[in-house]
Design a protein around this nucleic acid. Structure first.
Lengths: 189, 189
DNA sequence: TTGTTTACTTACTTACAAGTAAGTAACTTT
DNA sequence: AAAGTTACTTACTTGTAAGTAAGTAAACAA
């Protein structure tokens, strides 16, 4: 039964996105799945291994999503990215980068590396999308597309975090204004 | 000796900004200060009390800073805000909002309330600064000043988080582009 | 049919976390 | 001088965390 393994990853993913990596425990997984904590260690010898598996799953999910969008115009592609964040927002979750980056320094190296790889994948895709979109006059922005991608991702990441504290409307306020900025040719004065 | 109390708050502040609230322990404080963990409980009966004290100190610091800047032109005021984040960045720290918001749901109510109060203070000041600056044609941006303030704060918060994972240059790339955007009258196409 | 692998459980260990009760030395007030 | 009060320490409790060694029942393979 690979089923149990995938359920463990799925629950760990949820727990990381609600409580944070250091704050969830094996009991939070073994209780609802009605297994013993040793069963988790059977699949993932250490908590680090489990963390790595969760991130790997996220990277794969991202790659398969973006592959599906690749024939859309760039503004639609970016909208799709916004949509994945919006879905997390509706479930009261934050993104993996958002939870994992504050705790980053407490992680053992293999986990740090995975987090870095994930962030690189996000940034590269977004930079490419923005660059292509600007060439086609779909997007309008100053500066290097990679730098702009960092701004966009920083807004998406933080909008989920801030929504937790400042209320659910915060997400829409940030992402709405952000998308408008990128797709508006001129600023009025 | 109020000295010990302040040293505990100072170290807790550092620890929250490096490891996160749930990941630091009383030992991380009692060892370097060469006191016993019971001494921390003497001043702060619970970890929540300590967290609240750290946030209160941060709010006071913010209020006294902004009060000092109040006669500057708005772009200088905002630059000062950026500078406070830049200082944290140089020390390898993130901001309190950045660490505390992912763990928010694991906090007891009094701590949640303090985090919310802190975020409100930041947002209100920034919104006011942006609104005043736009009236004087120092800043140029579309939309509601409060919404724009959320974008600015989200970029500042996330730039510290992302720098941890994606390298120290990330901070400058995000904040540099952000400031340019706000102080540029027109976008070129 | 015997042996091996898979997918766990049982039953523990070690470590460390937050928190507390009771004591104490030094200083302060009456 | 006696009685607090302050600022701790000593010594402990309780709970929970990650992790492990050894066992087992069922499926599968030789």
């Amino acid at each position: 039964m690979q089923d149990t393994k995938e359920r463990i990853i799925g629950l760990a993913d949820q727990l990381i996105k609600t409580k944070g990596f250091n704050a969830f425990s094996y009991k939070d997984i073994s209780d609802p799945l009605e297994i013993k904590n040793a069963a988790i260690h059977y699949y993932f010898p250490t908590k680090t291994d489990l963390g790595v598996a969760v991130i790997d799953t996220e990277i794969e999910r991202f790659k398969s999503h973006t592959a599906k969008w690749s024939n859309m115009p760039e503004d639609k592609q970016l909208k799709q990215l916004f949509e994945t964040f919006s879905r997390k927002h509706k479930e009261g979750l934050v993104c993996l980068m958002g939870t994992l980056s504050p705790d980053y320094k407490t992680f053992p190296e293999p986990l740090q590396e995975k987090v870095a790889a994930m962030s690189a994948a996000f940034a590269e895709w977004t930079a490419q999308c923005l660059e292509n979109g600007r060439k086609k006059a779909i997007f309008f922005f100053d500066g290097d597309p990679y730098d702009r991608a960092l701004l966009v991702l920083s807004n998406l990441l933080a909008s989920l975090l801030m929504s937790r504290v400042m209320g659910v409307r915060t997400f829409g306020k940030i992402t709405g204004q952000l998308f408008k900025d990128l797709t508006t040719a001129h600023k009025q004065e």
